[in-house]
Design a protein around this nucleic acid. Sequence first.
DNA 1: ATGAAAGCGCTAACAG
DNA 2: CTGTTAGCGCTTTCAT
Lengths: 330, 330
Amino acid sequence: MEQHKYNIIDIARLAQVSTATVSRVLHEKGGYSKETETRVRRVIAECGFQLNKNAQGLRTQKSRNIGVIVPDITNEFFARIIRYLELFFLKHQYSVLICDSHEDIEIEQLHIRNLKEQQVEGIIYISGRNANPIQESAFSIPIVYIDRKPEDVHIFVHSDNRQGGYLAARELIEKQCRSILFLRDQKKASTIRQRRSGYLEALEEAGIAFQESWEIMTKSDYASVFKTVTNLLMQKGCFFDGVFATNDNMALACLHALHAQHIQVPDQVKIVGFDNVSISQFCHPALTTITQNTELMAEAAGDALLKRIHHELDKQEFIIPVSLCVREST
Amino acid sequence: MEQHKYNIIDIARLAQVSTATVSRVLHEKGGYSKETETRVRRVIAECGFQLNKNAQGLRTQKSRNIGVIVPDITNEFFARIIRYLELFFLKHQYSVLICDSHEDIEIEQLHIRNLKEQQVEGIIYISGRNANPIQESAFSIPIVYIDRKPEDVHIFVHSDNRQGGYLAARELIEKQCRSILFLRDQKKASTIRQRRSGYLEALEEAGIAFQESWEIMTKSDYASVFKTVTNLLMQKGCFFDGVFATNDNMALACLHALHAQHIQVPDQVKIVGFDNVSISQFCHPALTTITQNTELMAEAAGDALLKRIHHELDKQEFIIPVSLCVREST
DNA sequence: ATGAAAGCGCTAACAG
DNA sequence: CTGTTAGCGCTTTCAT
């Protein structure tokens, strides 16, 4: 194959036209005859010409790049959103620059600096459960937030967490649970608050009085949850017959802790998780859980960002519906 | 904050120097007095000036971008490699453009076209277990392959799969297994072939004669593996006391299939997986597995690519050591 | 130690 | 329908 990299001037020369015409053909702007078009296209194909995005971006002041900042790409839930985001923007001829912040403020700053240098036209900020206190002003670039409500006014999209909490609790109640733990991350986040209120709503609807002792706070990693649940069992026995955990990993740790104490799931205790990541389907018994629609979330965020870039949107909140996925743990 | 975007000319004017000097300060090239330096730096800081990578790339013909193509970012093993790659290149002032091919040749082409337009200086191609037959020539851009041996000469890095297979089988043998299944993806891939040969080596070393019926081929998704193992159990009973699965997901499916037939792990059958993804640590019983060192893989690949870009490397194979992680399934 | 100026590849306004 | 040309922001050679 050709070693030399062709530019638009080479193409113009070879096709015996001006660079303007080549550019017009390239972008299907019209204003050229059928013959010139075919001639130009043929030369482009023959040379394997590729547009130089740097030059284009410099000239047009539009990079067609957008940045995505995520706390941990290794987390399946985030990875899924990113996947759909990429697909969405590919369709719209934008490139996506993915930045894993490792929940480290310095790395995040480095990434943001880089995104600005890359002239991104917009940023999607996925904060997830572990919201960092980032600076939001001082930003002339449009930002769409996923999963986290920023302090000042902005665009953000998130699941219908309240509904999720409600569906989870209702499922447990329908399966005859009367003492339902709310096993949650100790961090305070709007997502958790919303899930809690849905859970409370379902309890109330069923005429079940919420007990303070049902709300179990813990660090959200597997080992911590396992220990918390085990301690609970040791100290107070199995005084509950249902658990709503605020994510699948916590639900799984809870499941194993119960199992280790010879408590049967779902016979003695039923469990509902949140997220519907693959682990919930491949554990034993498979977890009933709340599905967050990552595809819809990504599309809503992408749409919103594009609109924002084109000044067709100022501020808005997008709430993505969730659904109950019943498996073996209830 | 300032709304206007400053460029190097603005800075030059404000600092009463030429753009050349600003550029020199920016890149610490020397050739300026202490005073000018401080003056320039102050202006830069005050304005929040950010370099324009498009212009820089255009002028220098170096984008400082590298592309990473991956079949599925949702797969934790790949996601971990990406994470480390990002970190590595961040350190080296390169941006990483991550492309999820969805194992779809068309999407991959789109991504490759985009990477070329972005003027990437190199590409890291992670093919994983599901190698696509991609075009490798017709490429003037340096490529480093991870996990897959390309047909023509190139740079590639992969785990010591043979050693992994050997360690897995030896662990099983040491724990008194004498009939050890090799549960593998039906696809033929160099990684699997290597793991197989390590497994055979360990058997031979222990004086165990390999039986054809021990090699179980199956599609690698959870449901298929579950079905395959279940069928095996139905038809031939539990004629084995150990299983070496070529990845953790398969090992997990096997574990659950055994469990469903009331076969105890590790009492009756012991299992070793491969990869050491988080699921292997959070399942019950936790899986003994072979750890692939994703960090080292990423660093080797990054190093190699950088060297290749600077013409300091032509062709080479990098083999990354693996290790045995003993947990509860053996 | 510093500045002037050319030019990277492309687009778009303007001229014809 | 097509061409000419200025200029996007930056680096770098050559002068001074």
